[in-house]
Design a protein around this nucleic acid. Structure first.
Lengths: 250, 250
DNA sequence: AAACCGAACATTGTCTGACATAGTTGACTC
DNA sequence: GAGTCAACTATGTCAGACAATGTTCGGTTT
């Protein structure tokens, strides 16, 4: 015998219903991700809360489901949301307690920035250690040269990031293991928007620049312990700066 | 006046045509990305070469266009391919040298197994350290449970790799940073392909299994130093085993 | 009353077909 | 031979349908 129909409305999350009232139609040129962030902010969704389903979002924003899916899939790759067949899409990013007042855009992106750094940190340290052990004499000379170039650009007050990039690439090359450079490049590429967009011209890492000289010299002279120490310090400073930026963003 | 029909075949890239002959149908369970990599390698495509169009790939691989698109879009985000409306999809990076899909290329030389391990090592150690610090009480319990499960399976003489996988995944989850899991998953995939195919039934890691119990207990009790120590030992053992296999395999 | 079960439901995953948009090609014109 | 332009190619997006799977809730059992 067929079951009787269910007559009560599904008592879904109250928040999820509330969300729908906040959705604005998507004007031309705006990005779907931006619209989604705005929606999440407006509805004050936090970790674990469920987002409206894809079809609903697509209908309200006036775009096809495919665009919504693309956006949410990208977020899932970055660890911002978790999606499950049958269940819905939920916010997965952990929002630091001290950044509650920050707009969610910043919160999500800052959170990703910290996560990226957390992965980059051990890779970079190990790469330096390996480079100290494995580099050829020629490579040690090049590393010192790149460091000198970096310091010159830095003291001239110019944009030092390209030089910094070349310097670190030389270290990765010296490990003899291309995977290090590739993995870090991949990570940086995936989060490039984050690095550049929300914080404007980044002063990220300025105060750690001065440590690059002793680090390079440690690599060149084969002093494994010092090289690792300096790199660890640099990573710590960068992390502190990231946290500071996040804290200052409220 | 209407233009006359074009009667000559489009003299497309020779390679692109050659490619189609290499495409194999996608068997169940294989990943689309894997199939694409295999295809690219079989056709010896290099930087700048054009891939077959989406519809063609979908038809040959026996999947919908959406899956192909998802895979190619992911690659584009990583900078492996460049896609243009109207024009096609072209290889933008040397896929053989890119980290995302090293399995096939790595099968060729066992030496790259060591390189892979060199990258995995610091990631795994840092993940364990983070998990020791960040895990919730619930997660610590689950880690212990997974460890017990792993030991049971191991002592029963069954295939312990799935249990091992679940155990490590739980640790990655406990870091609160999904990037660790994602990166290591890629690397591990490379490992699996390697030590399953050429070396037969792998004994890789067996002798390190016994160290998993104290490691899990260190994580659960928040003993950062011990956890890192045990993980380092495990990594060292695995590395030694890899070297042994390589030495014996020539 | 609490635990259990199953059918309906909700939601993401995938396939298919269609159209829009934009780059590429090649025959035709000059 | 150079330029033009229509046809062709290929990706971007939309819409609808079905599949797969987690979730909910009424009814049944203990």
């Amino acid at each position: 015998m067929p079951r009787p129909e269910r007559n009560s409305l599904p008592s879904d999350d109250l928040k999820a219903n509330k969300v729908l009232n906040h959705i604005k139609p998507l004007v031309a040129g705006r990005d779907v991700l931006d619209a989604l962030v705005e929606l999440i902010e407006a509805a004050k969704l936090t970790v674990g809360d469920k987002l409206p389903p894809e079809v609903e979002l697509a209908r309200r924003l006036g775009v096809g489901r495919s665009k919504i899916r693309e956006a949410l899939n990208a977020w899932q790759k970055m660890g911002i949301v978790v999606r499950n067949k049958g269940a819905g899409t939920r916010l997965a990013a952990e929002i630091a307690s001290h950044s509650v007042h920050m707009p969610l855009t910043m919160k999500l992106e800052a959170e990703s920035l910290l996560r990226t750094h957390a992965v980059r940190r051990p890779l970079e340290i190990e790469a330096v250690r390996l480079a100290t052990v494995e580099a050829t004499d020629q490579q040690r000379k090049v590393i010192l040269a790149r460091m000198a170039e970096l310091m010159a650009v830095y003291e001239a007050g110019e944009d030092w990031r390209p030089a910094d990039h070349r310097f670190h690439n030389e270290i990765f090359a010296a490990t003899g293991n291309p995977l290090f450079g590739q993995l870090i490049a991949q990570i940086q590429k995936a989060f490039q928007d984050i690095y550049e967009a929300p914080f404007g011209k980044p002063h990220l890492g300025q105060s750690s620049i001065v440590l690059h000289r002793p680090m390079a010299e440690a690599i060149a002279s084969g002093d494994q312990i010092s090289a690792v120490n300096y790199t660890t310090q640099i990573m710590d400073i960068v992390e502190a700066e990231v946290r500071e930026i996040i804290g200052a963003g409220k």
